[in-house]
Amino acid sequence: MENGDCSYRRFLDGDNSAFDGIVKEHFDHVVFFIDRILHDTQASEDVAIDVFAYLAFKKGYDGRSSMRTYLLTVARSRALNYIKKHRAHPTVSFDDLSSEACDRADMLDRLIDDERKKYVSEAMDKLPDDQKTALHLVFFEGLTYKETAKIMKKSEKQVDNLLFRAKNALRSLFGEEGRKYL
């Protein structure tokens, strides 16, 4: 059983401090994932807080999947809701843009220590959303196809296809020089 699961059980038993462990372990990953969808680090953090609040309030995690998979599933759903809600009124100030760039750079530094992954991560933003999400979950979160399919509400075969297309797209983006990253 994963650490998140044990902490969550303790949290359910009334130990609020156990929730700290969950937040510490998963929060940045959730923000990173949401940021892939929203392209807005502050909004992603906000949505991530909602995801954890949902976890604390709903107490709906049943241990059938890993805690990370559960959180990312909720995160994806919340992120898509966020897009639906805010599509009509996108507001970004110049101050936000500069701090946004800093926040993202910080987050990438914290989460990706591998030069190769950083290179891929930047290139991924040019891919379609589904391919980007699938690639992120498999490549950055290290999830299996099955877990990825569950989060994306797709079949494993569809995830496989998405990854295949994403890799091809990246290959053409990188050119000869970038082939070594893939």
Partner: peptide, 23 residues
Amino acid sequence: MRSFEERKSEIFARAGQMEKRRK
């Protein structure tokens, strides 16, 4: 970005709001 403590308090505040909305 928020600090860990800020995140935590925000999470529990929102969980409280969710509970209120549910009621």
